[in-house]
Design a protein around this nucleic acid. Sequence first.
DNA 1: GTGAAAGCGCTAACAG
DNA 2: CTGTTAGCGCTTTCAC
Lengths: 349, 349
Amino acid sequence: MTTREPDAGHAGASRGGAAAPRVRLVDVAREAGLSKTTVSAALNGTGRLSPAVREKAVETARRMGYRPNATARQLRAGRARLIGYVVGEFAGEPWTYLDSPYFAQLTGATSAAALRHGYALVMLPAGTLQREWADLPLEAVIVADPVEDDPLVEDFLAARIPVFSDASVAGREGAHWVDLDTDAAVRECLEHLRAGGARRTALVLPDSTTRFHRQMLAAYRAWCAAHGAEELVTLVPEPGNGPVVRAVERALTAEPRPDGLFVVAEASPPLVMDAARRLGLAAPRDVRVVCVSEDESAAHADPPVSTLSLRPVEVAEKGMALLVAALEGGSSTPPGVLLTARLEVRASS
Amino acid sequence: MTTREPDAGHAGASRGGAAAPRVRLVDVAREAGLSKTTVSAALNGTGRLSPAVREKAVETARRMGYRPNATARQLRAGRARLIGYVVGEFAGEPWTYLDSPYFAQLTGATSAAALRHGYALVMLPAGTLQREWADLPLEAVIVADPVEDDPLVEDFLAARIPVFSDASVAGREGAHWVDLDTDAAVRECLEHLRAGGARRTALVLPDSTTRFHRQMLAAYRAWCAAHGAEELVTLVPEPGNGPVVRAVERALTAEPRPDGLFVVAEASPPLVMDAARRLGLAAPRDVRVVCVSEDESAAHADPPVSTLSLRPVEVAEKGMALLVAALEGGSSTPPGVLLTARLEVRASS
DNA sequence: GTGAAAGCGCTAACAG
DNA sequence: CTGTTAGCGCTTTCAC
């Protein structure tokens, strides 16, 4: 069988839709009157070649528009420098998670960090099936916010693909994690509100089984118990600004009325302040407010809203450093990293 | 040289950090007492095999935890089903673009659509260099919102990688596009505002050279000219809620005051209404407002804000359909597709 | 019905 | 200093 028969046409200008056969290393070598090895070495700056030969190889390659076949290199190298990226939380709605500024920033920062380390990130929509990623040469996978006993995590681990996620995967073989110190975060917020005078701080929390939300609730309860404060929890039945706003209204119309509000549910901060205003409450005079949010609009609301940042950019960068260390540095890497959230105090509290 | 010498250890349980050598097709074949061919056929359901043999092959593969090497398959297949995805607009800030709900939805919907068609999307942060994607076996690349004469687009085209983008690339060899009918969109908004009674509608627009923004401005001017209306344009010097809010304030304090406001700059709709309220203006009584936005918070603002949706999900899906057709269907695909924006009328107008 | 062998495009030993 | 050769792991004609 001659080498290139199956392909579209010969080297000449293909007129129709048939793509011109891509020029290979061997084509360049033949044209330059050199061997594959020499050309390869010249292009990769690898071997010891005479400047004249190297120049000739490089020039010929350039002239012929040669581009190395990435797949062949990957096969040769035994690795593809490809990392999968999934967000587990909203498995029902395959793409909506990016609407959340937290995940938007996490995703963007992760892909940037990956590229800086020489890896590319492939986006796997939540709910992706095994057979959809099985054809990808993934070296590792990042699962942001997995649900409890996430089947995705199980599948990747079973396939011996290292998983990078939050602390819910801690202790499993091949699993690494980056997580937030939620206890410290909740404590800082509640004590900040208390220092401002709040004695009854209500919590607005999604009715979800995400690890993060469960931990925030537990930390809130622990803090209340430790300080003899009454637990005031309003659950948000589903994601979205509407449900959160209604929950805020419910929380603020309880009797006796809370004088502190800690909104952990993802919502537009200006809308939270709108809700308070509609109830005739001014912040921070009547109620001191802190929202968990990465939404930049918080700083421009009226009044500007204090936020607790979950630091997606730092999470992404620490996570990628951990991933690269684990993938390349051998086995002596720590299994996980704990980060601290950051409270941005603004006028609302 | 024996085949597997370079690898970590032998088949036995590797104790240290050394990864267990992955099981290959040939290992399964040997274990099952069959040939590579037979096992391959069995696993792919390809050849004509006796049920017994097929069963044996499949069972052995399962037992040994065999997973095909994706890279080898890709090399064999001659394609990797990988598509690059870049957002060109904010080349200065490598990740912030996802903060915008439009791009967030576009990105998510694109990756979902890609996977549905059997392709995976690799995220290339804005500002990615040639040498960073050259090692990826990309079959095509999607460039959302390229800047004028985007070097990224030039590089991809020069590398003979098909580019899918907006209409600014129209007419170039290997370039395909999906775009919005901005004329129709602007007309619909301005006529809607006018029908509500607005006689002086101001435009708030980013001071950017993005094709979209230039077209919106041109369409606004054309409409004003055609209707004998005065042009009232306020430019936003840089992205972000703060600058947009200040521009809105400037626009609304002009003399004589506008009675219509068309905000094309990306901002949190509740903040726009806050700005109007601070100036003592009620919508729609004093000023009728339409914002270009995909932000769900618009529907919950006080009053709810009318929005012009650029339909990122539809753009993503049409674009992916076009891409797949061009990549697989041959050459008879249209070069581009034009979509219509959607005006969501709410109380603010 | 089953298996041997070629080869996808590249890089890295090893001769010359 | 350069070229020949052996594979990376898989699929697929083509003989048997």
